[in-house]
Every structure is written in C-alpha cells, then in structure tokens.
C-alpha cells in the first residue's frame, strides 16, 4: 500500500519510466505522454506500485500502436503485484514482460 502519486518521464535510453499509482485518474495523461513517443521500445515499471484496468487499457493501446508501427514495446522491471495483474489479464501473451531484478 502506498500513497504515492503518479509520475511518467523518459529514461536515459529512451524508455518510458512510470512510477507510483496508475489509476483511472492518471490514465489520460499517461496515454498522451506515451503517444508522443514515436519510437517507444520499452516501458520501465520498476517504480510502479499499482495498476488497474484503466492502466491496462493504456498499455494495450500503446502496444497496438507500437506493433502497428512495426516494433513491439517491452515491459521491464515489473514488480510482483503488478506482474500478477498482467497475468490475470493475459498480458503475458501480448507483451514481453521482464520481472524486477
């Protein structure tokens, strides 16, 4: 449990870095940010504490956009609770997901 708010930025290698809570109130901003990265290849979720279906929708729309543009996006450094949600949603079949080291 965390009171963390949400933050999204570009990392040093061009990846998107998400942190905190991606709840329904943050999804429009997150999707807009991701849509403005044409060559997105990875999303770092190492500091993401919480996601629900509105956030899954953001990931799904982003993957659809990136795949249509020619290259899939990977989800990296995913923490166990968030990884569980991805598994429930069957996202392990449409994303390459790597766990937090």
């Amino acid at each position: 449990m965390s009171n963390a708010t949400f933050d999204i930025r570009r990392g040093a290698s061009g990846e998107a870095v998400l942190a905190g809570r991606l709840d329904a109130t943050q999804c429009d901003a997150a999707l807009k940010f991701l849509n403005e990265i044409p060559d997105l290849r990875a999303i770092d979720l190492g500091a993401l504490e919480y996601i629900a279906s509105a956030g899954l929708r953001v990931m799904l729309l982003t993957q659809k956009r990136c795949k249509a543009a020619g290259a899939a996006v990977r989800l990296i450094n995913v923490k166990p609770p968030v990884h569980d949600i991805f598994r429930y949603a069957g996202f392990d079949q449409i994303f390459e997901i790597s766990a937090a080291g």
Binding site: A52, S53, A54, L56, R57, L60, L61, K64, I85, Y88, A89
Partner: peptide, 9 residues
C-alpha cells in the same frame, strides 16, 4: 478489446 477487464480482475 481494450475494455471489460475490470470486473473480470
């Protein structure tokens, strides 16, 4: 589909 996951989860 991009929706419908909430209640399922």
């Amino acid at each position: 589909p991009v929706g419908g996951l909430g209640v399922f989860l």
